[in-house]
Amino acid sequence: MQRSSSPEIEIDTRRADTVRRTLWYGLVVVILIWCAVIPVFDGNLSLYFAMMMWVTLATGLNFIAGFTGYMPFGYVAFYGIGAYATGIAVKVLGMSVYLAIPFAGVVGVLFGLLIAPTLRLSGIYFAIVSLSLAIICQRAIALMPEEVTGGSLGLNLGVVTVREHGYYAMLLILVAALLTASWLARSRLGKALKAIRDDAEAAEALGVNVTRSRLYAWLLATLFPALAGGTQAWFTGALDPQTAFDVLVTAKTVIYAMAGGLGTVLGPLVGTVVLVWVDELIWRAFPVLNNFLLGAIIAALILFAPRGLIGSLTRRYPRLRRYIM
């Protein structure tokens, strides 16, 4: 077939793919090496743990919000359930914490499967139902017998292992989340999900099984917050219903992911790293005005870059899209 293209464009496309892959994996490797050596230099372990956890949560949220357009306002439910699954596994079932984390992931996914019928809803209805389920989870756990969940006071896990082990567990989960995201972005499932996000009815008319694809994305989105919640419980050694199901966890995750740009692999990573650092810097320089300044920065970001840092960059400079995953 006679193409209207020039050979240069073909070469450029292939080179762009190579550059994109190299950039992405290079960036991930640098970040991971950086995070991996922090405990060796006795750096600010808690800050880096928190950053890795937020990146994991934002990446997990991206699977459902960025790739399919579903915004789960009750996303914290999976984080809280993961935390409590770990707590109960360690304190009540006497399980090793190393087994308790995968157990938390399984429990999170099973809970996701249980409430998967809510995916029949869309838009604000799904968001509200999701938020309600998170509140129900919080109340239910607070009302459960103290010997199981610790009631409203929560559970004190104490020092389960050395703290660094929890840190490295979070690093592993982060790696898994980023690898899953980069696989999803390149996979056929990822393309199906993006099509569903843009127009579910048209996607279905073109042969995409919308229900099944959404379910896969949903289950992926439930796995990582459950793992992160479990590891957070391990790292801090304590959990209670108020903090484990704090709606602010959802809010911060959404803000971080949106700040970078939903729907891209890089967006949630960049948004989280930038905002967590900005938060830290503001807190150090202006402890009293911390929340005020951070709020103003986030408002400005949403106002001037509604698609997030990465999304707005690629919209302004479409050629960059080739190099960004």
Partner: peptide, 19 residues
């Protein structure tokens, strides 16, 4: 037209043949 706005043209065309 109900195209997939935030997907490239190539990606748009991949949707019907994902299987």
């Amino acid at each position: 037209p109900r195209i997939f706005h935030r997907m490239t043209l190539i990606e748009n065309l991949m949707v019907p043949v994902l299987g």
